[in-house]
Amino acid sequence: MSPEIARLILQATADTLYMVLVATALGTLFGLPLGVFLATSRRGELLSAPWLNGALGFIVNATRSTPFIILVVAIIPFTRLVAGTSIGTTAAIVPLTVAATPFIARLIEAAVREVDQGLIEAARAMGASPLQIVAKVLVPEALPGIVLGLTLAIVSLIGYSAIVGVVGGGGLGDLGIRYGYQRFMPEVMASVVIVLIVLVQGVQSLGDRLALRLNKRLRHA
């Protein structure tokens, strides 16, 4: 493999990591409050707001049901508005974040719903406000589940990031398509796949280990 190609792979890996990590961070920033709200706002729940819950749930479902490649193209005006351009690695972060936010919100909702209702009751009996219950009970207790959810989100985003090549987003997937497939360079394709496998494996085992360490429900964690 020529040094030229090795440099390309290195650059693509950096681009992928940059896009995925920034999109995950932003997706968590928006998805965490959204997910917690979805998990606590049905009728009779802690932040009971059934109409808003229904409306947000619909938007989340609508975003999640749009195939990612269509989403990327459909929101180009929005991307241009936010990033100043619709082309390039930084611009690709916008559709990735838009896709990641509802996904992360649903994963966090699921994790928060796993928290025993008895803990909410106990906190209410102590005189906790709804926000204190969220901050001191729900999020800390759901943390192992949230970490596993974010791990899943990162792995999914690594897959999504291959698609943003269509808007010049760069990254490993893009390199694989342009060099490996279109220029028929199987060694590039193979390298891209190997790097992706290593990335996904690494992220998953890191996430698993962190979640295990955070999970105090297991005696020997």
């Binding site: 025993d116 008895g118 803990l119 009751e121 106990a122 209410r124 009996a125 102590m126 005189g127 906790a128 406000s129 009970v137 800390p140 207790e141 943390l143 955070l214 105090k216 429900r217």
Partner: peptide, 22 residues
């Protein structure tokens, strides 16, 4: 007002309701 009253009333539960993360 209930929240401040609740701070003067302790409660123990059948299933303990302790936070596993603490």
């Amino acid at each position: 007002a209930l929240r401040s009253v609740r701070r003067s009333i302790g409660m123990v539960f059948q299933h303990f309701n302790l936070l596993s993360s603490r």
